[in-house]
Amino acid sequence: MNMVEEALHELSAARAPDGFLERTLRACGLRDSYAKVATPIGDYFVAWRGNRVSAVSRADKGLESFLNWFASEVGRSLEPAEGVPALIRRALLATRGQGLSYDFGQLTEFEQAVLRKTLEIPRGEVRSYGWVAREIGRPGAVRAVGTALRHNPIPLLIPCHRVVRGDGELGNYAGGHPELKKDILKLEGLDLGWLEDLARRHKRFLGSRTTHVFCQPTCSHARRIALDNRVEFSAEQEARAAGYRPCRDCRPVAA
């Protein structure tokens, strides 16, 4: 073999630099990175792959626990990053996850449907487990919705804190202690005392005398009703009998 062919042969045996595989897979969005973010309600670990968020977790149990949990729940390994992408960071600080993309990894279709529906609940509003079940076309699966939300791998951004029990109690919280659920809802501007008062009096809907539409109490339309025009209803039949129709945005009853 002459020297040029031999050297070409040597060139073809060149090795990609150390770490090339990992850097390339990360650039393709095939590797999860993680970093810590400080929020008004404490420190959180956030993991993402490409532009998709794959996990959010309170940092109070430590890094090791987060890494182990991620490995067992998501089934992939994590690499530390310098910081969280600005878009994800802003969304976390504002608890507004709607504009982001998510990597639901190994979650079942049902679990994914529950999380996607939960993502639609606006900031400052709450819905019941039953509402989520009904909205995803599985009205009988209320308990399963509760289970799926208790295992929400992306709390805060997927706002499982906005799903509460129908009786006015707040219920379980995937993101940590139930008290935390309260704190986040307060931070989002929800008047919990007022909600509890309505629940105690078994008032489930608010109607407007001017539009003759009835809503869930925290719906943004309900909150704009002037006090003089506001009527409270305990049941759907009561509202309908009074000539009210359900709100198209908060969909307070089954269609």
Binding site: L11, S12, A13, A14, R15, A16, P17, T24
Partner: peptide, 8 residues
Amino acid sequence: THQHRLFA
């Protein structure tokens, strides 16, 4: 599989 050849 292809990283080294492609790098070369």
